[in-house]
Design a protein around this nucleic acid. Structure first.
Lengths: 124, 124
DNA sequence: ATATTGTATATACTCTATATACACATTATA
DNA sequence: TATAATGTGTATATAGAGTATATACAATAT
């Protein structure tokens, strides 16, 4: 279970956990039925409170990615990956929209944006 | 002075004011030496607290865009527009990077992103 | 029984936004 | 010219939402 908490990120800890677990489910690193680390174990390894890991798992449960059972643990549910892909698509679209707004305000052309995009998309 | 506060936006009110005034300075709608609306007048027209407009003006002052004088008002300072343009460029780049991350996670191709970008950039 | 799991309650800190009262500058007017 | 009235920015104290926490509780497995 590779999860990295960045203090420099503006995203709250519980959200960083949520998005990274989602990404691992999407990539197949976590499959249906797999057990997640216990809230305590994850909290300990990340050196954060159990309550924060619980909050992350609650969010994942609310969104239908996992299920938790008292005394047993938390497990990955069956995923409709096409739905998740569309969610990412929406998020990418929103970010692109914001980028375009800034570009307009700064007088940056569509061509410049396309060039930037190629550099960034390829360079990862 | 056209400023629009969106409740659906996740950005705080004072930041919405800051970015819109910045944009108006960049576009030339506000020129060096121009008087901004008084904190009270702006607060009244936006139906928000004076303290919030004050906070926005403080931020603009801190970033060197305006100057405020007790009893007189707030005024636009001289701007180095090239510097501001570069700031927008940086922000656009950051947003593009985030968009590319989401695209990768969702298996969205560079071609799809380029198409999206054209639609969004043109369609504003 | 004991250990491991998830859960619930009460608390603290930061950020956003506010009401209210204060201090300074300009303008109207006596 | 004095001075009251108005308009300007400023400072203090307060409230609410969001994030993160320590600690104690409840259910399950061994």
């Amino acid at each position: 279970m590779d999860i990295i908490i960045s203090n420099s990120s503006d995203a709250p800890i519980y959200e960083q956990i949520v998005s990274q677990i989602k990404a691992q489910i999407m990539s197949g690193a976590l499959a249906e039925g797999d057990a997640l680390p216990s809230m305590r174990a994850l909290a300990q390894s990340l050196r954060i409170s159990i309550i924060t890991t619980k909050r992350a798992y609650e969010e994942l449960e609310r969104e239908g990615f996992i299920e938790s059972y008292t005394g047993k643990g938390s497990f990955v549910k069956h995923q409709n990956k096409e739905l998740v892909r569309e969610e990412y698509m929406k998020q990418a679209e929103q970010l692109l929209t914001q980028a375009c707004e800034k570009a307009h305000m700064g007088g940056i052309s569509a061509r410049e944006l396309h060039e930037l995009l190629d550099i960034i998309y390829g360079g990862e």
